[in-house]
Write a protein that binds this DNA or RNA. Structure first.
Lengths: 237, 237
DNA sequence: TAGTGGTCTAGACCACGGA
DNA sequence: CCGTGGTCTAGACCACTAG
């Protein structure tokens, strides 16, 4: 490299990342083609190999490169790019939209786990969990409908929480960090009860997000979130 | 640290990541609390500071830690976790499910860009783009309905492609790497035409994914994907 | 201004797996 | 086997910002 053309805008690794990405996008390095190895790039850019390694690992995680020992680094043939989105606390989500947040606990009980949730959670059907239904509001209009099952054995202390004032989402985020989570997006037509709670009409199409979390002592909670019609969830990259 | 208890299962950085995560989850280090600085942890674990740095940066990206110069590293108060999912090529997605893939190009034309897409793309309404509608099938049953606008100025060479044999998704992935993408999930009721093409009934709730991609010469493509009823999109962590 | 994380380096050794 | 990426180290300097 003769000289850094653009403003670095970051460190050397960031510069190398951008430059390599540019070469891929501009087709200087073509799909499936092997690119110079770390030592060569280190020499070209005048940096240590560790710096090149960091840059290339970022691009590999991003899906633009395939790296294998001995085989070298190649431009990915079918770049399987990853998108990510953050999972915000409902209250913050509502307040970020400039609305005032409130929520209402519709029901809470200890109930045997229905079959349809048992497999997902990895618990036997019939095991007694805490079952909650709640609605989250923005400016008094329904924003999200929540149907949640909580495994009390994974969350000691939950029995004593009053969820009329603290919503379960927030309490769990702060008190039950998870190791693994799974999210499922789907769509379904609002049932009669869903429609009433969301103050919309039955058969309305709803975006559904199912989220289940685990830690090393087993499943923590599974929740079905039904969003108000028109809600759009955004992810980037 | 006296000794590594568990099987390392990775390098030292991976071990430190797991151990710190464990201390957070087990509440040895509480929310908002400051944890020892990198030098101290390096001494505790008997590793170089760079190794601790790498481990803590992973946890910070994951959202479990807040790190600031001079202020040190703290356990995040509201862990905003990120979930990610990969954006597969439709054909691979279908074949991964054990079905045989086929697709059908419904229409292709050069059309002025409607107002509703103009803002999203950052192009003036009325600019002439390529407009395509296609259906992707798994075992001859409709899997996904695609409504796509392509900016030919961002993708030289696209005019000569015959999309009856190559689907646009695949061609673009291989020939038009993007710098930035935006994804929007929503739900809507199937219109008459959607229902016919997806071989389902009108008013059926559909999961909709809008994806728009850009590179440094502007927007590349925006596409609305309507999935067959019952389809579930999964993301993890 | 001093303490903390951010980054880089030159070198080393190791693990994987293609040739 | 042996070239490649994966990881670690000891040290250095820098950038930010809290006190």
């Amino acid at each position: 490299m003769t000289e850094r053309e653009a403003l670095p805008s970051g460190g050397k690794a960031a510069y190398i990342t951008e430059e390599v990405r540019r070469r891929i996008i501009e087709k200087e390095w073509r799909q499936g083609e092997r690119i110079p190895d770390e030592a060569e790039l280190a020499a070209e850019f005048g940096v240590a190999r560790a710096t090149v390694n960091k840059a290339l690992q970022m691009l590999a995680e991003e899906g633009l490169l395939d790296r294998r020992r001995r085989a070298g680094t190649r431009v990915a043939v079918n770049p399987v790019r990853k998108a990510s989105f953050s999972i915000p606390i409902v209250r913050e989500q509502v307040e970020a939209a400039g609305m005032s947040y409130s929520h209402r606990l519709i029901s809470q009980s200890r109930s045997p786990l229905p079959e349809r949730h048992a497999a997902r959670l990895g618990l036997p059907a019939g095991e007694v969990l805490i079952h909650q239904r709640a609605v989250h509001y923005g400016d008094r209009r329904p924003f999200q409908l929540e149907d949640r099952w909580i495994n009390p054995r994974a969350v000691p202390g939950i029995e004593t929480v009053d969820f009329h004032h603290m919503n379960a989402n927030e309490w769990l985020v702060r008190n039950a960090p998870y190791l693994r989570a799974e999210l499922n997006f789907s769509a379904c037509s609002a049932g009669v009860r869903d429609a009433r709670l969301l103050e919309t009409k039955p058969e309305q199409a709803l975006l559904i997000l199912n989220r289940t979390t685990w830690n090393d002592s087993g499943p923590i909670t599974t929740v079905r979130l039904a969003f108000h019609p028109g809600y759009v969830m955004t992810a980037t990259t």
